[in-house]
């Protein structure tokens, strides 16, 4: 049996960060949504899993602080990864997640391709929607932290800001969390896993590697660049072992099921959501 050639896409740290954000995000989604829909029987049922409203709040607060710590560690990791001696190249080359002018061009090409008006864009290592996914989390997390921490410590917060700001923060926190959940459960799941060619699962974030031939089609410029620089052999790795695949299939699909279950209930009970 000939295994397809695979190349590295995500380091072990990237994958750990992803698993971390998956687990913490889902816990926050469950404990947050249970309390958001506390006036419904479903919300009460969810909250009771955590020992009532106060229990769910305690879990939500603790995991929120964990997420914040994870975010700080991530920033340290990212800053350590930048080669500061050649920072201009390191920050703005094709391996960087920072947005470039070419991403806008790609988006235009992609939309033209939707209507059969041109060829699809040739992507480098990161596509514009992958970059959007990353930056959506990156600015969403601080917003949730900045609004969430004062709500966690209202007495201390009201020393440095008027108390009515907390009314606005509740609204911002809820709306941002709803946006994050809807985005992940609808768009991220669909683009990542349910799309034709990706179904049943896009394994690269768990396996860390991708099939070279598939990637030649999806991200031709990346492969071309690797060949040009002669690094293609360097990044070739063996595929994930079978037991590991079983684990991440079970794990990934549990996450998808939880997400879709939450999405379904979000839609069912949408009229009970208080925006503020």
């Amino acid at each position: 049996m000939n295994d397809p050639v695979r190349i590295v896409r995500f380091s072990i740290f990237d994958r750990l960060f992803h698993v971390f954000i998956m687990v913490t995000f889902l816990i926050q989604a469950v404990t947050g949504m249970g309390r958001l829909l506390y006036t419904t029987a479903w919300g009460k049922g969810v909250v009771n899993l955590f020992g009532g409203y106060d229990g769910a709040t305690a879990v939500h607060n603790t995991v929120g602080i964990l997420m914040l710590i994870g975010f700080v560690i991530h920033i340290v990791y990212v800053l350590a990864k930048v080669e500061w001696k050649s920072w201009r190249r390191s920050l703005f080359d094709a391996d960087s997640l920072l947005p470039r002018r070419r991403d806008v061009v790609h988006l235009g090409q992609k939309i033209r391709w939707f209507f059969g008006l041109g060829p699809p864009p040739a992507f480098d290592r990161w596509t514009y929607w992958e970059k959007f996914d990353y930056w959506a989390v990156f600015w969403g997390l601080p917003l949730l932290a900045v609004t969430g921490l004062p709500l966690m410590f209202p007495l201390a917060a009201s020393r440095i800001m008027p108390g009515w700001v907390l009314n606005v923060f509740v609204l911002l926190h809820r709306a941002e969390a709803l946006l994050a959940m809807l985005y992940i459960f609808i768009i991220h799941f669909t683009i990542g896993h349910f799309r034709r060619g990706m179904f049943p699962m896009n394994e690269c974030m768990f396996a860390g590697s991708v099939e070279l031939e598939k990637e030649r089609k999806e991200k031709p410029l990346w492969i071309a660049r690797l060949q040009e620089e002669g690094r293609l052999e360097e990044v070739m790795v063996a595929g994930p072992p079978r037991w590991y695949r079983v684990i991440y299939f079970v794990f990934g699909y549990s996450a998808v099921v939880v997400g879709l279950y939450l999405l379904l209930n979000l839609l069912i009970y949408r009229s009970y959501i208080e925006w503020h």
Partner: peptide, 23 residues
Amino acid sequence: MYLLIVGTLGFFILHTLFWMGRE
């Protein structure tokens, strides 16, 4: 927040639908 949610989701849901249709 309303405009942000409607804008982001509206754009990306259409984007995904057209994409899947084309594929």
